[in-house]
């Protein structure tokens, strides 16, 4: 028993000690209260509990940390996308051409670039600035001209924008030029005159000079 597990041979011990060693090795230690059946039961129970506590052998040790990291990254990405998407979007509105309202001119120089308005801005021209009123009048919605209510408001806005003192002049101009007195001027004619004047043409001129621009710095 001793020689089998020895690192050194027992020749260093004397003969008397070797004999005494063999005599002692023949005495078997007592197991005391150690019960084999109870020990095997407790050991099996402990092994089963330890096996349950361990992660699965089919899944490597780094699997759960990797899954947790990927899940966290996905949640952060989705949260960022939701926050970006919640901001107010920019809506593009096409702006009509200048001559569609007045003379129907199709001059490419009259093309106006697209203007952008935030979606939350009100679309009613009577609540905006003077520029917005003019823009809504000249470049605004393409409503039909026979809409009397819309025409009335357009003319009213035009008068408010250009001033009421121009109204008598505009009223007198057709009769002076055409020699017609007591001629009733419709709202549509008044609107045409005002529109032409706003674009720099001589109001009331039906001849070849009708499209002659006014001098620069007109009172618009």
């Amino acid at each position: 028993m001793v020689d089998r597990h020895s690192n050194r041979p027992n020749r260093e011990l004397s003969a008397e000690l070797q004999a005494f060693e063999a005599q002692l090795a023949a005495i078997l230690p007592s197991t005391g209260r150690l019960e084999r059946d109870r020990l095997m039961f407790e050991a099996g129970k402990a092994a089963a509990e330890a096996e349950q506590m361990r992660p699965s052998a089919s899944m490597p040790r780094w699997a759960w940390p990797a899954i947790s990291t990927a899940s966290t990254a996905s949640a952060v990405f989705l949260l960022a996308m939701v926050l970006i998407d919640s901001r107010s979007p920019i809506v593009e509105k096409p702006v009509p051409r200048t001559g569609e309202i007045t003379s129907g001119a199709t001059d490419p120089s009259d093309q106006v670039p697209v203007r952008r308005f935030p979606d939350s801005q009100p679309d009613r021209p009577d609540q905006g600035s003077s520029h917005a009123l003019l823009a809504s009048l000249f470049f605004g919605d393409e409503q039909p001209r026979d809409n009397s209510r819309s025409t009335y408001f357009d003319q009213r806005n035009m008068l408010l924008a250009l001033g009421g003192d121009r109204l008598p002049e505009l009223r007198e101009t057709p009769s002076a030029k055409g020699g017609r007195s007591n001629t009733r001027v419709s709202y549509a004619d008044l609107l045409d005159e005002l529109t032409l004047e706003a674009h720099g043409f001589v109001p009331g001129n039906n001849g070849p000079d009708r499209l002659k621009p006014l001098h620069q710095g007109t009172d618009l």
């Binding site: 150690l34 020990l39 407790e42 050991a43 099996g44 092994a47 509990e49 330890a50």
Partner: peptide, 10 residues
């Protein structure tokens, strides 16, 4: 000794 053997089985 019993605790050591159980610990070995763990």
């Amino acid at each position: 000794v019993q605790e050591a053997l159980i610990q070995l089985m763990r």
